[in-house]
Structure formats: structure tokens, C-alpha cells
Design a protein around this nucleic acid. Structure first.
Lengths: 129, 129
DNA sequence: CCTTGACCTTCCAGTGAGTGGAACCTTTAT
DNA sequence: ATAAAGGTTCCACTCACTGGAAGGTCAAGG
């Protein structure tokens, strides 16, 4: 199977798949013409990667998750730890964004948004000390 | 005032200030020895930039906000539009992260996290089609 | 006068996770 | 024979810094 079909099956852009090979996440075989030859295990891995990335796992997390996935003697605790750490990160990011959202929506609401120059948004950003 | 004091006053790392000069956000004068000489207007701008960045505005947004800040004949509508767009982006990011959070916390909860290999997290990531 | 240490300078490289594009090769269909 | 559609590699760019090397400047102490 060539890269385009692997892309279709996995839902990843061909460019991304090449990149994943570059960084050693997948290792498709090669045909005599130099084309990548994807086996089912490869597309299966790619799908796995796509799902993990969609959940926001970093590439390094993905690398580790993939290793655990392939390790039949893994401990589920190791998987859970990675996921829990990532969940914590996500929750902290959500909290940060919500702080921004609160402040910003207050500012936006307080601004008339007309053709006059008076603007509480700029005022707040430029506040002395 | 040298860069270190500007950094202290604005709360930004010296490196970041040099970078902001590089990309044209601030234009401190220079002493004869080549050292940057920050005026109050410079540190004021830097503080502004720090606050805007803390609210998640991109550098390009900051550039535009700074220009509006300095334009006494601005229309507050222009400021508001930038802030509203950014707020929309933030809200969309929050929604994305909350989707991940929901999925992930379900997965984490469903995983025993012991020394056995069975793991619903990996199972879900590796699900066929 | 010399040295030490704390500043300051510029410039280069790297981050994460791809994406865009150029230049070129191979296969398939007409 | 050629054109289209696929494949390949490689280089550069993104964003907003950050780290570090190599070197210049300045104030204080001996």
C-alpha cells in the first residue's frame, strides 16, 4: 500500500506520515522503486497515533504510548500515569484560558465599540504600575 | 535606563525585550557604548505588551493594539474587534480542550492502573476502524 | 594599573509538530 | 510519446521566544 492509501486509512496527511517516519514512529518497508510500502500494522499504528494526537498527547507521549501498546507485558499503571499527567496539563491549560476568557469578556463588554477613541481595553492594558 | 531595569519594571525577561526590539515593537535609544537606553515610554510599552501577551494576544495582535493605543484618533470599535476575535479563539480552544478532558478523564477512570496489561486507554486508541 | 564580576552586545541554534514548495523520479492511461 | 497523478528528498517557514557562545564595557577593590 502506497502512502496515499495509508493516509486515507489512518486519516493523517501524507506529509505527516512522512514526518512520523522521519522521527521514527513508523517504519514502513520500501518497494524497489523507493516508494514506501505500508503494511496493516503500519496503518494501524498511524491510526493509533492520530487518535492519541487528537487527544492532545505530545509526540513523545505518543512514542511512549505506542511502545506500551506493543508491549504485551506492560503495566496498565504506566499507561494511566501518562494519561493522568496529560489530563492534568489539559486541566491546567483550561484554567489558564478561562482566566483569560473572564478578563477578556469583561473588557470586551465594557468597551463601547463605536467610533470614539475611549477604550477600557487599552486603558487596562496601559495602566500605570 | 539599561535593559535590566527595563526588564524589572516591565516584568519581561531581557531576552524577550531584545526580541521585541528585533521585531520592531519597541525602539529604545542607544548610549554611546551601544547599550540600549530605555525611556519611560519604552518601559510603558513593554508593560503593555506583557499584559496583552498574558491575555493570549498574538504578537501581531499586540502590534495592532499598540498602534491603536498610540493613535489618539482610534475608534474603540477597532480595539474591540481585535479583542472579540481573540475571545472567540480562546473560547473555541477551551471547547476543544474540554472535549479532550471529557474523553481522557473517562479513559483514565476506566483504567485500573495496576500491574496488569489490560488497559482500556490503549484499547480505545488502538480500536479497529 | 590590574583584575574581578556584573553587566551589556550580537549572532546562531533549537523548541513542537508539522506545512509548503521546489526539483525530480515512477507509474498508468491515453 | 506524453500527460497526469502519484511518489521521492530536501530546505525553509511557522510562533514566540530561550539558551548559549564569544566578546565588549563598566564600577569597585586591591
Amino acid at each position: 500500500m502506497n502512502i496515499k492509501e495509508a493516509a486515507k486509512l489512518s486519516g493523517l496527511p501524507a506529509k505527516t506520515i512522512r514526518y512520523y517516519e522521519d522521527i521514527g514512529l513508523v517504519k514502513p518497508l520500501r518497494d524497489n522503486n523507493g516508494y514506501r510500502a505500508f503494511r496493516e500494522t503500519d496503518t494501524h499504528k498511524l491510526t493509533f497515533l492520530g487518535r492519541a494526537r487528537a487527544l492532545g498527547f505530545t509526540i513523545e507521549d505518543c512514542r511512549n504510548l505506542l511502545a506500551l501498546w506493543e508491549d504485551r507485558s506492560r503495566a496498565s499503571a504506566d499507561v494511566r500515569a501518562i494519561a493522568q499527567d496529560h489530563l492534568n496539563e489539559i486541566e491546567s491549560k483550561i484554567a489558564d484560558l478561562q482566566d483569560m476568557q473572564r478578563t477578556l469578556s469583561e473588557l470586551v463588554e465594557s468597551c463601547a465599540g463605536d467610533d470614539r477613541p475611549d477604550c477600557p481595553i487599552l486603558q487596562k492594558l496601559g495602566q500605570e504600575a
